[in-house]
């Protein structure tokens, strides 16, 4: 295989990473933007999405496309409900005090990991992809499923954008983000908005996980890397800015994939983590974000 096709393959692989990363990071960014909560357990919501997809496809059985569709519909709802519960039981009682919520979500992270380890086990298990044909390019065959992941993730992101800008619920969320107290004074039930945003953020991570699980197996520690990458993306994109987050997800997904493809994955991660630390120190509004007023 020549360099050109090799680069094309690397780009396509990276585009899959970028698409799922965008979903995960937008979830994290929404939660931070509206609630000012840094959710360290976000990676575990991702992991729970993948693990519950495995359980659902195993229980439902039948043709692969059918059980996968059920998982894609049910797993994110389950994870979102769990997140809403965590918000009500833990975060709300802390009054969303930033440092306390970080400690609490670290605790939640361990609890979810242990739950997955106890009920699911330490092994990695695959989920059948819903369809299995390969698109034959002149140089190599490529999985059509991976391309559909990119398409579906794009559709979901457009849906989130329409939801935030064109519906009443989205308007209420944005109003709460701008000014929590004024929103409350106008009769918005801020507690419900927060629970909803936390559930939506977790649900997006879970959708990304269900999409990725036929490519990458489900494992109880799989939440670590998406969490780190999502953090990096949200910070580079500018905390709380959705447009910045998506631009950053594409940029980071592609560059991380390319560096990892041509050099070493570890080196790619070292560069990315240092970049984030330096961005936060020297350009806290993010590389693509506008300066906050």
């Amino acid at each position: 295989m020549g360099f050109g096709p090799f680069l094309l393959l690397a780009l396509m692989e990276s585009a899959v990473t970028a698409a799922t990363l965008a979903l995960t990071a937008v979830g994290l960014s929404l939660v931070f933007g509206v609630m000012r909560v840094v959710n360290v357990a976000h990676g575990e919501f991702f992991m729970l999405g993948a693990v519950s997809a495995w359980f659902i496809t195993t229980w439902v059985g039948g043709p692969a496309w059918f059980s996968f569709l059920v998982a894609l519909a049910v797993a994110p709802l389950f994870v979102a409900a769990l997140a809403a519960l965590a918000d009500r039981i833990v975060l709300k009682r802390l009054d969303y005090e930033p440092e306390a919520t970080i400690v609490a979500t670290i605790g939640l992270m361990y609890i979810f990991q242990q739950a997955a380890l106890s009920f699911y086990g330490p092994q990695a298990m695959p989920v059948e992809p819903p369809f299995n044909f390969r698109i034959q390019l002149p140089w190599f065959g490529y999985s059509a499923y991976k391309l559909s992941v990119i398409a579906f993730a794009t559709l979901v992101l457009i849906g989130v954008w329409l939801f935030l800008t064109r519906t009443r619920a989205g308007l209420v969320m944005r109003a709460t983000q701008v000014d929590r107290e004024t929103a409350q004074a106008f009769g918005i039930d801020v507690d419900r908005v927060y629970a909803g945003v936390f559930a939506l953020g977790a649900g997006l991570a879970a959708i990304a996980a269900v999409l990725i699980v036929p490519i990458q197996q489900a494992h109880y520690l799989m939440g670590h890397d998406p969490l780190l990458l999502a953090f990096i993306t949200v910070i580079v994109g500018g905390l709380g800015s959705l447009r910045g987050t998506i631009v950053a997800a594409i940029f980071i997904g592609l560059s991380d994939g390319l560096i990892a493809f041509f050099w070493s994955p570890t080196l790619a991660k070292i560069i990315a983590t240092l970049l984030v630390a330096l961005v936060l120190v020297f350009r806290p509004q993010g590389l693509f974000g506008a300066r906050q007023q």
């Binding site: 840094v38 930033p98 570890t266 070292i270 983590t273 630390a277 936060l280 120190v281 020297f282 806290p284």
Partner: peptide, 26 residues
């Protein structure tokens, strides 16, 4: 890291530690 405070400080220190861990692996 001390040029930042609060949540940013937590994340910056976390990232430096992560970079250190990855460097040890590298």
């Amino acid at each position: 890291a001390l040029r930042t405070a609060g949540v940013s400080f937590m994340i910056v220190t976390l990232m430096f530690a992560q970079a250190g861990y990855l460097t040890l692996l590298y």
